[in-house]
Simulated scan of single mutants.
Amino acid sequence: MKKLYQWSNWKTWLVSLIIFAAFLGFILPNEAAESSRVTGTSESPDSSFFYTPETLFSIAETYGEEGRAYYVRARYTFDIVWPIAYFLFLITTLGILFKSIQRSRWRYVILLPLSGLVFDYLENLSTSLVMSCYPEQLNVIAAIAPVFTAVKWSCIYASFALIPIGIVTYLITRKKSLRSQ
């Protein structure tokens, strides 16, 4: 955890911001458009907060063979890199903002983006298995995939929600530091 804080600096943050913005502005819209074109729908388990195994099987059916193959390919190409992009942005942002209070319990907030990344990969693995084996129904995997998705989104949303708190904390700590000089 200490390494994550040491790694969080303004230079790393700026690079991560540029990468994150490029994904949001160019790569994600293009990927979403291509996915909709190939699968015939904009529905995806990745974009839902929670879904049922039945919904996952229904999406697999809707995608068709070509759409399922595309979905699996995207999980092991695009969706390997995208989580790294948002992870780097969140980890450096929270690292900079909470660096000054590392001795409190708040120091653990830097682990939220890492948890989001891990659960994103677990989601990708499980949904890809369901898609690649369909029409065979992998009921256990289809049952845990929505849990991975919900935990992923909870960690990501919490990470973004912590940014305003971190900004206030950073400004207060900085003000106190300037007063004591």
Rank of each mutant, 00 (worst) to 15 (best):
K3E: 10
Y5T: 11
Y5I: 04
Y5E: 04
W7Q: 07
W7E: 01
S8V: 07
N9A: 07
W10D: 03
T12L: 00
S16E: 07
A21E: 03
F23K: 08
L24C: 13
F26M: 08
N30M: 14
A32E: 12
A32G: 04
A33R: 13
A33L: 09
A33M: 03
E34Y: 07
E34W: 08
R37Q: 14
V38E: 13
T41K: 14
S42N: 14
S44P: 13
S44H: 08
P45G: 14
P45K: 05
D46N: 10
Y51V: 09
T52V: 00
T52M: 04
T55S: 15
T55E: 15
L56H: 02
E61H: 12
T62K: 14
T62P: 02
Y63C: 04
R68D: 11
Y70D: 11
R73I: 09
A74M: 08
R75H: 02
T77K: 01
T77S: 09
F78H: 04
D79K: 10
D79N: 08
D79H: 13
P83V: 10
I84W: 14
A85H: 02
A85R: 02
L97E: 06
S104Y: 03
Y108G: 03
L111P: 12
L111Y: 15
L112S: 04
L114Q: 04
S115W: 02
G116F: 01
G116A: 12
L117N: 03
Y121W: 15
L122P: 02
L122K: 01
L125E: 00
S126C: 05
S132M: 00
S132G: 00
C133Q: 09
P135E: 12
Q137C: 06
N139D: 11
F148K: 05
W153L: 11
S154W: 05
C155T: 12
A158C: 05
P164D: 10
P164H: 11
G166V: 00
G166L: 10
I167G: 08
Y170P: 09
I172R: 11
R179V: 06
